[in-house]
Design a protein around this nucleic acid. Structure first.
Lengths: 195, 195
DNA sequence: CTTATATACGGAGGGCTCCTCCGCTTATCA
DNA sequence: TGATAAGCGGAGGAGCCCTCCGTATATAAG
């Protein structure tokens, strides 16, 4: 599964127009997802990007592939934020703040919500790389927090990610964001070691 | 919105064949959802039921309508279970057990998962009646548990339902069930009044 | 029982989707 | 400056949801 453009190992280097088109498609897709929801048809993305539908499908073998490519960058940002928070806050606080950031993030970039769902749902292989990214972040946050005693020693990072994705699942109903934030607080309380 | 068959207020009573077909469709749909997932095409349901696609659409104006009709009965059972548990267990325990039951329920009847998601997601009006059913159950359980002091006084039933649906969201990945059960325990811990 | 008619029926087909296929064009390299 | 591999576009297949309408029939009235 190759999704990201890279020099590649073949003798020739990739044609300039191909690279241009790939980039155009990614940017157009990102914009289209943002302002027309994650249901936009691929035909429309191709049209907006000014390329044929065939070109789109050569670069991205199916719908999932282009979604995955688009939101991989976004997930990267979330993972980076985790590192930043761990450097500046005590472990428990870092976890808590990151979870809140997660909600913010979904709120502004709904695109990634469905894809995160697919990771948790164990759906597509295509999300594997992004999945690893985010799981890695959660593992680090939870690992440190449990090592420091801020949360239970037996807290499972997968559970935490599942909870987070779940809380942000119904992200179209009014008030979902406040609800998710409250649930995160409750989750943190529940994760604390029992006295 | 009429979905359930009833004597109705019109002069004539509904034709016998119509009622038969409606029932056939509902049962076939339930079976189809169970063994082919919630994505089965309506054409296939009609075919399996041995009626024309037109007949299906006369009884159920769109896809959501037939899904709603099918899973309404299921949701009813969940709501009934809540009443039963409240009669036989202390409030906190009743809530806890019901949440565990919820997971079991999703595990065996995945059909309803997506529909419950739609409720929490505030999606379709069509789910309104079933939504009321389940929200009523959660409100009763949470209300009693918080009145008795088993959980915080400020616990919000909507939050609890959202959490439950979220935990059971990725119900295809391996181990989701165990994870959801662990999360429910954590949620309960988090809901307890602070000392 | 016959007849009239409101009611219900089946399925063709419209418009959308995702995706495949293939003849034409063009960037690259010798 | 070609030769050619790489890339391009869009027609069209298959499947989906849903609408429409001519045909058939259960029911109520005579």
């Amino acid at each position: 599964m190759r999704v990201e453009a890279e020099p590649a190992e073949s003798g020739r280097k990739p044609r300039a127009d191909a690279q241009r088109n790939r980039e155009r498609l990614l940017e157009t897709a990102k914009a289209a997802f943002a302002d027309a929801g994650p249901e936009v048809s691929l035909d429309e993305i191709a049209r907006r990007a000014g390329v044929g539908i065939g070109t789109l499908y050569r670069h991205f073998p199916n719908r999932d592939a282009i979604v995955a490519a688009v939101y991989r960058r976004e997930v990267q940002q979330l993972a980076d934020a985790a590192t930043r928070l761990m450097d500046t806050l005590p472990p428990g606080e870092a976890l808590h703040q990151w979870m809140r950031l997660f909600v913010d993030y979904i709120a502004t970039k709904k695109v990634i919500a469905s894809a995160l769902g697919a990771i948790v749902g164990g759906a597509s292989e295509l999300y594997a790389s992004s999945g690893a990214l985010i799981i890695g972040a959660v593992e680090a946050l939870v690992g440190r927090a449990s090592a420091s005693g801020d949360i239970r020693a037996d807290a499972d990072p997968d559970d935490v990610l599942r909870a987070l994705v779940g809380f942000t699942y119904g992200n179209t109903s009014p008030g979902w964001e406040a609800s998710a934030l409250r649930l995160i607080d409750i989750l943190m309380d529940g994760l604390r070691p029992s006295p």
